[in-house]
Amino acid sequence: MKHRTFFWFILPSATAMLLFIALPIVSVLIQSVHAPHQQVIREVENCNVFGCTTTTVVDQEATRLLREAAPMGRFVGTGIYTDRNHLAISEVGALWTKSEGMGDFFGQLLNLPFYGALAFTLTYTALVTPLAILLGFAVALAVNAIPRLFRGPAIFVSLLPMIVTPLVGALILFWMVDARGILGAAIQSLVGDPTLSIKASTPLMWAMLIVYGIWSTSPFAFVVYYAGLQTVPQDTLESAMIDGATRWQRIRHVIFPHLLPLTTFMALIKIMDNFRVFEPIVSFNAGAHAQSLSYFIYSDLGGETRLLSSAAATSVLTILGVVILLSPVLVRTWRSFGKETA
């Protein structure tokens, strides 16, 4: 392709990427190294129907003058990244020197909000990504094996978890696992403990969120694999059958290698999605037991007092987390790409 043609060809998507991906990231980066100005606080006498008290107010006029003089706010560099509500560098340092052994250190580390949320986010990503892909693969193989007549309804039913809005799907499950709900009561009678409550236990709540994650995201893997299964070369499959390969051997040596690029693609997308886990925590009211980085951004932006710089810093840390998690897959793809062209 000529350079000129290539330029015009790529221009629309490059512009869109610049506007909708690069600029927001730059804006978030700038926001994360600035904080609001020092508030000018005054003491005043406050009288209302309940009587008079001395109280403090923000001197709006003085604070407005400060803001007009420097609209970007205070430059704080990495101050927000390192504070206790994020990477907590000095707190972690203090823990390291005074903790008794590694167990104690990690126990206390997980009490810091960022690391506690990271622990759940990573556990969720590490379990949901492979299990959802595996379940989707199994469902795709099963659907592909049933007679054509029943495939339409089977595909529809398999896609249902993805069709249901995540918040609504999670809310339905939330009531089903209630101690008085059908699933919750069933689990109680299965383990023979009438006081068991999923919503009251941290490990069970984590398990619930992970099961929900697998249930709601496996249809994506199913639909991609099902499409992929239609492209498996029939000749190879038939010759494998003539050679006496069992169904498992055909899956292992013919179908699986054929679908490997799809698996890489799905792993990339799903790691990115799962690292941003958010809706189930809200729907399951799981804030007491599990928090994630996206949940922090949500509570910073929706709290009583909005913490924009904190939300920006957490966003940048989320992007960095995704980049770190994706790097092995990206490096692998880059290497195999180099090989093919060479």
Binding site: Q39, R74, D83, R84, N111, T202, H289
Partner: peptide, 27 residues
């Protein structure tokens, strides 16, 4: 409330979380 830590630790955590947020916000 879930028994993960004692009352004094929880109150210290709350104070530390508030202090970090109030510092960011300029209070």
């Amino acid at each position: 409330l879930t028994g993960k830590e004692d009352a004094a630790t929880t109150l210290a955590d709350i104070e530390a979380a508030y202090t970090a947020a109030a510092t960011e916000k300029g209070f």
